[in-house]
């Protein structure tokens, strides 16, 4: 039996491989998708460039591939890796279907509910080996939730995947935000409970997201598509459950929660951005973005940051990363309070 410190080091070293793998795969999908006509318009640029879409598929590919390698070298909890891979893979399939078929807004939350089922099923088959129905809360100890916890898992996966999907309106916001969130949760796991499998998955997600971010950062050369956004969100949700970082993950995702809640509270239904008649922001002639003056427009996070002050896209992206850094710091404090 190897010492725990060595296990954790091996996990991090293998996870670092996610960066070049994700980088190469993103480059590959950029070429293939551009050649196949799978492109989207960057609507927040005056020149309206065409950018290869669905390149975020490199992230679930990388995560599943490396999870398999980690199990094969005998490093991780195979049930946890299987549950994680099934959740990420199924969310990627839902995202790919949405990218190609342009489904109505209601189908994404419904279909991503199903993506949480592998964790529930494996958890019922192998009790206490996949998830633990005892919720740790900061300061106040633990709750044992044998009935509610498994029922909440599909909801949690649906919420994290769709809220991540909703906060990717500008270049690099999803990949950069998820990198910050996963880095904070990785540090928290390393400080509080460095289980090698959790360390591997969080660092794998961090480096895979960074590999994609290289091409997705402002000005984007690759778009994630629903396939990337939903699978990355599902990965965060699955990791929250499998690594017992549920509360800290909620805190780290405060920018996503605010964005989704304000969108839904104004629009009052699940819908796609493309189907909105009143857009939350408008592009000015000088290339800056401004908050919409239409009272029917949703109060998204980007619109909130633009109230009374038009700004360049790169400035808003920096501000969103600043918000992620705040929520990530609060998540880290939450994990330390839980001990």
């Amino acid at each position: 039996m190897l010492p725990s410190g060595w296990d954790v080091t091996t996990a991090v070293l293998l996870a670092i491989v996610a960066f070049p793998v994700s980088l190469v795969l993103t480059r590959f999908f950029m070429r293939v998708n551009a050649r196949s006509g799978i492109v989207g318009i960057d609507v927040h640029k005056v020149s309206k460039p065409l950018i290869p879409e669905m390149c975020g598929v490199s992230i679930p590919f990388t995560l599943i591939l490396l999870s398999a390698v980690y199990v094969l070298i005998g490093g991780g909890n195979s049930l946890m890796m299987l549950a994680f891979s099934l959740v990420v893979g199924s969310a990627a399939v839902v995202g790919a279907l949405d990218d190609r078929l342009k489904m109505r807004g209601i189908y994404k939350p419904l279909l991503t509910l199903l993506c949480g089922l592998p964790i529930v099923a494996l958890g019922l088959l192998y009790p206490n080996q996949v998830y633990n129905p005892t919720l740790q809360v900061p300061i106040f100890g633990v709750f044992h939730l044998p009935v509610i916890y498994p029922l909440a898992i599909p909801v949690a996966i649906s919420v994290t995947s769709n809220t991540t999907n909703m906060l990717d309106p500008l270049n690099g916001t999803m990949a950069g935000g998820v990198s910050i969130v996963s880095a904070a949760l990785l540090i928290g796991v390393l400080i509080t409970n460095p289980a090698p499998s959790s360390v591997f998955l969080y660092s794998g997600l961090l480096f895979a997201a960074l590999g994609f971010f290289y091409f997705n950062r402002y000005p984007s050369r690759a778009f994630a598509g629903n396939v990337g956004q939903l699978s990355v969100g599902a990965a965060l949700g699955a990791l929250a459950i499998l690594s017992r970082t549920e509360i800290a993950s909620i805190v780290a995702m405060f920018p996503n929660i605010q964005n989704s809640f304000f969108f839904l509270s104004k629009i009052k239904r699940f819908t796609e951005h493309r189907a909105l008649t009143a857009k939350p922001t408008k592009l000015l002639d000088d290339g800056r973005l401004a908050s919409s003056s239409d009272p029917k427009a949703p109060l998204t996070l980007v619109r909130t940051l633009l109230v009374g002050q038009p700004a360049k896209e790169s400035e808003i992206v920096s501000t969103i990363f600043g918000l992620y850094l705040i929520s990530a710091a609060l998540a880290l404090i939450t994990m330390i309070l839980m001990g």
Binding site: F254, T304, Q309, S314, T319, G322, S327, L330
Partner: peptide, 19 residues
């Protein structure tokens, strides 16, 4: 960070900490 909207970040900081 280049171009950070400090007022918005400060207000959001208050929102996030209180929430």
């Amino acid at each position: 960070m280049k171009g950070l909207n400090q007022r918005a970040v400060a207000l959001q900081l208050m929102v996030f900490v209180s929430q």
